[in-house]
């Protein structure tokens, strides 16, 4: 009998707590896309930005994962009614839903990873990345490291934030061919026709394995999967085949650190500094300097970069490494265009 009173008390208390839970003066909220927060990719990295803000400024944070596209709108609405001080939505696919929510709730502040609105919306900060700059370096690197003279890439869905990686990658390889007079070819993406290999999802590791296998069968010995967690399947295949046969270039966030199971297969990662930019967006909202518009991450502001070579640094010659360092500064200085 006593126990049940206690239980009831605890229940009441919890209800009260739950009803008055806005204990923080400032709360940052994130809606993930269907990849989920544990995608070891852009959802995870963006969430890291939120967590960095929590650690740095002692703010509150909330997370909502989307199981399906149909969840985007209600998830954003939930956070609006929660009274979040800034709502971070992750991913190009949430572009429309975020725009609508922002227009319906002009009082709320939004930041969206991988989407730039034209014209801009006053209460949305679009965080986009000149990923092609970093991918250009990765393409040059891959062309220099490849033994078969064939490298490959594939994407998740044919959308700009994905294909920009592939554009840069191809441009980097082409630049290598032009400089060195070689004939390294890229499978999986044609920047002219905007056609290439796509898994049409961001979740199937099996697809990642199958697509990498296909590219490997066609002779590619370095593959860059631009499909979030799908790439983990490609990495597993590479680890089975051995890095002499197949190397992987990761995307979004240094896969060597995240994919600890197969870390040795990553030649490098084309990183998007989403954690830093999300943190920046949250800080701007907190100190009142928030402004709608577009924030672009570049090599220059360290918003994009390529990760260290880690275990595979021995396969990158000093000469090649120096060339890449030089290329980086010429891109930053505007001497070199990464467009094809």
């Amino acid at each position: 009998m006593k126990l049940s009173y206690k239980l009831f008390g605890a229940f009441l208390a919890s209800v009260l707590i739950s009803l008055s839970s806005t204990a923080f003066a400032f709360t940052a909220c994130q809606v993930t896309d269907i990849g989920g927060v544990d995608d070891k990719g852009f959802n995870a990295t963006s969430w890291k930005g939120v967590q960095d803000a929590v650690a740095k400024h002692g703010i509150g944070s909330k997370l909502l994962e989307s199981n399906a596209e149909t969840d985007y709108v209600p998830n954003l609405n939930s956070f609006v009614s929660e009274g979040c001080d800034i709502i971070v939505s992750v991913g190009f696919l949430m572009g429309e839903a975020t725009a609508n929510a922002a227009k319906e709730n002009p009082e709320s502040k939004f930041a969206i990873v991988d989407f730039a609105y034209d014209p801009t919306i006053p209460n949305v900060m679009g965080l986009i990345y000149n990923t092609d700059e970093a991918a250009f370096l990765a393409g040059y690197l891959a062309a220099g490291v490849s033994k078969t003279g064939i490298v490959g890439t594939f994407g998740g869905i044919n959308i700009p934030p994905v294909t920009i990686f592939m554009d840069g990658f191809v441009a980097g390889v082409n630049h290598y061919n032009k400089t060195k007079g070689t004939n390294v070819s890229v499978l999986g993406w044609d920047p002219e026709s905007k056609e290439g290999l796509f898994t049409n999802n961001f979740s199937s590791l099996d697809d990642g394995r199958a697509f990498a296998q296909n590219l490997y069968d066609e002779g590619a010995d370095i593959v860059m999967p631009v499909a979030g967690p799908v790439g983990l399947g490609s990495a597993a295949l590479a680890s089975e085949l051995g890095t002499d046969s197949l190397k992987i270039i990761g995307v979004d966030v240094d896969q060597y650190v995240l994919d600890t199971k197969n870390q040795s297969v990553y030649l490098t990662t084309v990183e998007k500094g989403m954690d830093a930019t999300v943190l920046g967006a949250i800080e701007s909202a907190k100190n009142g300097s928030f402004k709608g518009g577009v924030y672009v991450g570049t090599l220059a502001n360290n918003g994009v970069r390529i990760a260290p070579y880690h275990d595979l640094s021995s396969s990158v010659s000093n000469g090649l490494n120096n060339e890449i360092k030089k290329l980086r500064s010429s891109i930053i200085n505007g001497f070199l265009s990464v467009k094809n």
Binding site: S21, K62, L63, P74, N75, S78
Partner: peptide, 16 residues
């Protein structure tokens, strides 16, 4: 589905 949303928001319990 609808309640799971608020559950994750308020209690941080995964929607899974």
């Amino acid at each position: 589905i609808a309640g799971g949303r608020l559950m994750q928001v308020k209690a941080g319990v995964s929607i899974d």
